[in-house]
């Protein structure tokens, strides 16, 4: 008989290894975006702590400010700022993708949402900054 029932194996599905996010630029950007969450969280915690210090004991607050002025903390703040901005920009863009702004029946590019959100970010940041300067 010429048809024999032989089953030849398939190459099984390869599950991705731990380094999968290096395979492609988009994956890497995604991983960095995920990583930004750490900095955003850390910075927020520090900030809350700062407010707490200011409120609870204004005397030791200047001591705290000295810690913040240390080179290590300044470099952390710069890195955190960079990551936070990256975080904001990528999410602004994603918002534009997930809830695209519509003009009539036409969807606009997510870049528009990114732009509008960034403009708002800048305006709010300046407003806050202004508040501090005026407050001083």
């Amino acid at each position: 008989m010429s048809t024999k029932k032989t089953h030849y194996p398939e190459i099984p599905r390869k599950n991705l290894g731990p380094g999968w996010w290096l395979a492609n630029r988009h994956y890497t950007v995604y991983m960095i975006r995920e990583l930004t969450s750490f900095f955003v969280t850390a910075f927020s915690l520090i900030y809350i702590y700062q407010v707490y210090r200011l409120a609870s004991n204004p005397g030791t607050y200047s001591q705290y400010l000295d810690t913040v002025r240390s080179p290590a903390m300044i470099s952390f703040s710069i890195v955190a700022l960079g990551f936070t901005l990256f975080h904001s920009v990528t999410w602004f863009y994603l918002i534009g993708k997930i809830q695209p702004i519509k003009i009539g029946r036409k969807k606009t590019s997510p870049l528009l949402a990114l732009g509008i959100n960034t403009v708002f970010l800048v305006i709010i940041s300046f407003a806050v900054l202004q508040l501090f300067i005026v407050g001083k």
């Binding site: 492609n24 988009h26 994956y27 995604y30 994603l94 993708k97 997930i98």
Partner: peptide
């Protein structure tokens, strides 16, 4: 889904599956 978004990048028909998932 954690919004990697590569599905929508490679989609040849502009379906944007990531969008469908978020919706």
């Amino acid at each position: 889904c954690t919004l990697i978004g590569e599905c929508s990048v490679v989609c040849p028909k502009g379906v944007d599956p990531m969008l469908a998932i978020q919706k």
